[in-house]
């Protein structure tokens, strides 16, 4: 059997694939987190909750309303975005003039409430979500077996990240967003409704997280705490990448997923902490993060 670096190829590539999938989720989540942070100066603790909500909305939709996976992929992010917008308009908005720590504390409280409510209603155990028929099965690539759904998750996340990146870096709207991130007051003085922009960006960030949640539903079981543990790793990703850079957030997401996958091959016990170890090393060597401009 073919080997890669002393490991049977299917095992090695299998773990790498798992790593890439986790990396895809990290990338989509840290992208949204970085967008929100840029414009709102807010570390959104509820980001993992939005991810969980995305998965739950699609599970509930399928179960009670018969909404299929493909419709969910659009509807769930929209629903969560709407929810995020309500949160921003009613609560976060009051905190912009205060110490930024309050935003973190508020979203932490929100995460507790929402997750608590879902645990109360649905218990802590996971609910299965079937892979849509069009994406079930797999392809034998000769050197490994590739489940179609996993390939789809990676592809969909990549496309979502790239489209977002293109919008931000290459469009008029993106230029406004970058400008408002640097100097919101001046952009206001140009006649732009920055408050509206903030609301939309928060909604969009929430939608991204929910999109990742819908993608995740058929892979992991849908449960109320699926986002809570993930978000802490995503925080590490964001610290590694440096909050200032959109591309940095995307790249470090995928990179960290792959590093985790490799760690599972060579040192399985460390795979759950490798993200934090990488973060500690990056902080010691390059405090601003791999792609960050300054701390």
């Amino acid at each position: 059997m073919m080997e890669i670096l002393g490991i049977p190829a299917p095992v090695f590539l299998g773990q790498l694939l798992l790593g890439a999938i986790n990396g895809a989720f990290y990338a989509v989540l840290s992208l949204g987190l970085a967008l929100i942070f840029g414009l709102l100066n807010l570390i959104n603790f509820a980001h993992g909750t939005f991810y969980m909500l995305g998965a739950f909305v699609s599970w509930l939709g399928l179960r009670y309303l018969g909404i299929d996976y493909w419709t969910s992929l659009v509807v769930a992010p929209l629903a969560v975005a709407l929810f995020g917008i309500v949160i921003e308009r009613t609560m976060l908005k009051r905190l912009y003039d205060l110490d930024h720590l309050y935003g973190l504390l508020l979203t932490f409280g929100l995460a507790l409430v929402i997750e608590g409510v879902f645990r109360q209603l649905h218990g802590a155990s996971g609910q299965p979500y079937a892979i849509p028929s069009a994406l079930s099965g797999g392809v034998n690539l000769g050197f490994m077996y590739l489940p179609v759904y996993r390939a789809w998750v990676i592809l969909a996340s990549l496309v979502m990240c790239l489209v977002t990146w293109l919008i931000i870096e290459r469009t008029k709207l993106g230029a406004l967003l970058r400008a408002a991130t640097e100097n919101p007051d001046l952009v206001r003085a140009f006649g732009v409704n920055v408050s509206l922009m903030i609301t939309v960006v928060f909604g969009f960030g929430a939608a991204l997280a929910a999109f990742a949640g819908v993608l995740a539903a058929p892979i992991y079981s849908v449960n109320p705490i699926m986002g809570a543990n993930l978000i802490i790793v995503v925080f590490a990703v964001v610290v590694i990448g440096g909050m200032g850079s959109i591309m940095g957030a995307i790249l470090s997401g995928f990179l960290l997923g792959l590093v985790e996958g490799l760690t599972k091959v060579y040192w399985p016990e460390a795979s759950s902490v490798v993200a934090f170890m990488v973060m500690a090393v990056v902080l010691m060597v390059k405090p601003a993060g791999l792609f960050g401009r300054n701390a």
Binding site: R188, A189, S195
Partner: peptide, 8 residues
């Protein structure tokens, strides 16, 4: 008025 309204 807010800055964006004044600018307009």
């Amino acid at each position: 008025l807010s800055p964006n309204r004044i600018a307009r």
